[in-house]
Amino acid sequence: MTERQIRLFGDPVLKTRSAEIVDIDDGVRSLVADLLDSVRLEGRAGVAAPQIGVNLRAFSYNVGESFGYLLNPEIVELRGEPELVDEGCLSVPTLWFPTMRHPEATIRGIDLDGTTVELSGTGVLAQAFQHEVDHLDGLLYLDRLDKPSRREAMKQVRESDWF
C-alpha cells in the first residue's frame, strides 16, 4: 500500500458526507492500509478517507502510543466542558486556530473483521477523534470557528500559496 496525497480545502470531497461501509472487501482493506501508511508521517494525528479522495466512513489515527483505524465511526459520548484547543488540518496546511473540542471522547465503529470496536481518548486523541468524525460528516474544523476567527481563517486561506 502507499501514502496517499492529501486533498486540500476547496476539494468537494471534503464537504460531502461520507458513505457508510457496507461490505468489507479488498477495496476497503486497501483503503485501511493506505490510511495507516498516510498517518504514519510525523505530525499527523489522523487521516480521514475523504482527505485521500475516498468518500467512505473510515479514518486512521496516530497519537502517542495510540495508532490504528476505525470504520463507520460514530461518537457515542463526549465528556467534559468544551474548551478552546489549537487545531490544524492537513487539508488546510499551515493554519492553526483555537477550536472548541471536548477533552474526552468515546467512539464506536468496526474493524476489518466486522467486529465492533469502542475507543476512548483524552486530550489530543479525543480531539483527533472529533476532528476525523467531522471530516466524515463533511465538516472542516474551520466550520466550527466563531465568525471573527473564520473570517480571518478564510483570509489566510485565500492568501496562502497552496490555495
Results as ranks from 00 to 15, higher is better:
V92P: 08
E42R: 01
V28P: 12
S66H: 05
S30I: 03
T99R: 09
H102S: 05
F9G: 13
T16Y: 08
S30N: 13
R101W: 12
W96A: 05
L56H: 04
D25Q: 10
L78S: 13
T99S: 07
R108F: 02
T99G: 09
S30C: 01
I6V: 15
R29A: 14
R4L: 05
H102R: 06
V13Q: 04
A105T: 15
A105C: 15
L90C: 04
G46V: 00
R44S: 04
V22W: 02
V32W: 02
E77C: 04
I6Q: 06
L84G: 07
I24C: 09
E77M: 12
A19P: 04
E81G: 04
V85N: 10
A105H: 03
D26I: 03
T99L: 07
M1L: 08
G68F: 00
L8S: 05
L70I: 15
T16S: 14
G46T: 01
L78H: 06
A49G: 04
Y69L: 04
T94M: 06
V85Y: 03
A45Q: 00
D37A: 14
V47C: 00
K15P: 00
C89V: 02
K15M: 10
F59L: 04
L71P: 11
D86T: 01
P82H: 09
E65H: 01
L70F: 05
L35E: 10
M1R: 08
V85W: 01
I6Y: 04
D23A: 15
A19M: 12
R44E: 00
A48H: 07
R4N: 00
V76K: 14
S66K: 14
L78P: 03
L95R: 10
A105R: 06
A48D: 05
S91Y: 02
L90H: 01
Q5T: 13
Q51G: 04
L31G: 05
S91R: 07
T16E: 15
P103L: 13
I75T: 14
F9R: 14
L14G: 13
A58T: 10
C89L: 01
S66Q: 12
R57C: 02
A45H: 00
V54D: 05
I52Q: 07
V54W: 02
T106P: 03
C89H: 00
R79E: 13
V92R: 08
N55C: 14
G53H: 08
A58L: 10
M100W: 10
L95Y: 08
Y69W: 03
E87N: 12
S60G: 12
D26K: 13
A105Y: 06
F67D: 04
F97D: 00
P12R: 15
R101S: 10
R79D: 13
L35H: 03
R108G: 05
A58I: 10
E83P: 01
N55V: 06
P103A: 14
Q5H: 13
G53S: 10
R101A: 13
R17N: 07
G27F: 06
R29V: 09
L14P: 13
V63H: 01
M1P: 05
F67H: 14
G53M: 09
D23C: 09
E42N: 02
